[in-house]
Design a binder for these strands. Structure first.
Length: 202
DNA sequence: TAGGTGATCTTG
DNA sequence: AAGATCACCTAT
């Protein structure tokens, strides 16, 4: 299959300084992977914004530079993938210019391409949220692993493609999941999902 | 609802 | 060097 750059979001799309607005705008966008010829993809239906400079829930707050967070400080348009609870790889989209540690966590996708491959990777046989709803689940379904940390999102392993624009009245806004220990920043309305979509994690 | 799992970061 | 923590998921 020929690579088709025209259908990939350009780097410029990731460089906005407003990670919250970007997180919302990624709803409806397609997330693709291709490993060893296996092409899988889904529509992003749930995201969360993380902002290194001001947000206590972000791994890079407050301007914390460690081996792990180094990826987030690079320029937007690459993947930030990390291991959580010893078992799950969480996939994030790095945004903003180099030097700013902003990222969007992708929390759920609606399967689009390669459903049999995704089911096999997940060890399930139904098309419901157990297949790709939840950040650990979607990474497993798409085959995303720690080797993808820092991967260029305009390349041929992982990429985003424009999908349907989601209108504001179809988007639900809420607080982020699993950040209760982060004080008042846990209350920020930085989680976005497509209302009523059956793959949304909660 | 409880427990698994291991890298990461702090020294609680 | 050791221990707490962790942007979660699965099976009871």
């Amino acid at each position: 299959m020929k690579s088709n750059k025209k259908n990939k979001l350009p780097i410029s799309h990731y460089l906005s300084t407003d990670v919250v607005d970007l997180a919302k705008s990624f709803l409806g966008t397609e997330l693709h992977t291709r490993y060893n010829g296996a092409h899988t993809a889904g529509i992003i239906v749930e995201t969360e914004a993380y902002c290194g400079a001001t947000d206590a829930a972000c791994h890079a707050y407050p301007d914390r530079r460690t081996p792990r967070t180094a990826t987030m400080y690079k320029g937007g348009g690459i993947a930030y993938v990390y291991l959580i609870y010893g078992m799950y790889n969480l996939f994030n989209i790095v945004t903003n210019e180099s030097g700013f540690a902003d990222a969007v966590l992708v929390r759920a996708i609606e399967p689009l391409i390669g459903l049999e491959e995704m089911k096999e990777r997940r060890g399930v046989n139904k098309e419901n949220k157990l297949l790709s709803g939840g950040p650990g689940r979607l990474s497993q379904a798409l085959g995303i692993g720690l080797n993808d940390d820092g991967e260029d999102l305009t390349g041929d392993r992982i990429w985003l493609a424009p999908g349907n624009q989601i209108s504001d009245d179809a988007i639900e806004v809420s607080t982020r999941i699993g950040v209760e220990s982060c004080g008042e920043d846990a209350l920020l309305p930085w989680r976005f999902h497509i209302r009523g979509n059956k793959y949304v994690s909660k």
